[in-house]
């Protein structure tokens, strides 16, 4: 192969990659475009590409009471992630650096709970929440989301803990550090990026969770996905409004995900990548 055809081939491959990426992300691009349209331009045949942009849809969404849902989502996501870390970090430590004898059993248990279909527990959860007066209550969601994310978080953080070199911990012990000091001053700073990656994944899954949110909350404690459900009942085609709502609902997680892409990769591969 000559250098010239090689370069041509490489250029073509790059072009193809760009094309595929743009096609793939097109529904999102279209969502952004549509969110700036007037409702008359949103649903047309053929689709409208040239239009006068407007912020009308966003103001409508805010008028329809979007902000309380957004606040609920932020509160539930933040606190449930915090709870996951509070419970998960010590557990991951007990399954890695100072492993208990039954480590593989405990790990198996955590992962197996992840495999229990959520539908299998929703009915008692509903009944229990009802009896406790916790229906449509953010705290119920916080506890459930923590339970949902904890198993995966323990698995991820365990693999990050395993990367901490044993010699470093021993060095700290020889240097005179007691266990809490070793953990706080030496281990924690080293695993911090891993914990951040784990927290990020928990945030994404909590923010996007739908099933519990729809079944256990309504106007009071509803999260962002619950707000979107309002759009299937309105049979009329408010596409521009829908797009604006979808964009606003997704934006926080989108931004976090974009900024922390590399953390995301580390978290997803459970620390298998250095």
């Amino acid at each position: 192969m000559t250098a010239r055809t090689n370069r041509l081939g490489r250029g073509a491959l790059t072009g193809l990659t760009w094309l595929v990426a743009l096609l793939f992300v097109f529904p999102v691009i279209w969502m952004v475009v549509t969110s700036f349209k007037h409702e008359v331009d949103a649903a047309t045949d053929p689709p409208t590409f040239a239009f006068t942009p407007t912020l009308e849809q966003f103001t409508t969404i805010l008028d329809r009471g979007f902000l309380p849902y957004l606040a609920n989502s932020a509160f539930v996501t933040g606190l449930s992630t915090l709870l996951v870390l509070l419970l998960g970090v010590p557990a991951a430590y007990a399954l890695s650096l100072a492993p208990v004898k039954q480590t593989s059993n405990a790990l198996g248990f955590f992962l197996s709970t992840k495999m229990l279909p959520i539908v299998a527990a929703i009915i008692p959860l509903y009944v229990i929440s009802q009896n406790l007066g916790m229906l449509d209550n953010v705290w119920a969601l916080i506890v459930l989301y923590a339970g949902m994310n904890l198993p995966l978080a323990v698995w991820m953080m365990r693999s990050f803990f395993l990367e901490v070199p044993t010699e470093m911990i021993e060095a700290a012990r020889v240097d005179g550090a007691k266990l809490p000091t070793v953990l706080y001053r030496v281990v924690l700073p080293v695993v911090a990026p891993g914990i951040a990656a784990t927290a990020l994944i928990c945030v994404i899954f909590a923010w996007t969770e739908f099933f519990y949110a729809v079944n256990l909350t309504a106007a009071q404690a509803g999260t962002v996905p619950v707000f979107l459900v309002g759009f299937i009942t309105s049979e009329g085609l408010f596409w521009a409004q829908l797009s604006a709502a979808a964009l606003l609902a997704s934006l926080p997680v989108m931004i976090i995900g974009w900024v922390a892409q590399n953390h995301l990769v580390r978290g997803l591969s459970m620390g298998a990548v250095k």
Binding site: I204, P225, Q261
Partner: peptide, 23 residues
């Protein structure tokens, strides 16, 4: 390109479903 490609994963699934259903 990588940023573009990961975006569908970061879209709220509920939003994604509604967008596909309509647009």
């Amino acid at each position: 390109v990588r940023t573009l490609l990961i975006t569908p994963f970061l879209i709220l699934p509920a939003a994604g479903a509604l967008l596909w259903k309509t647009t």
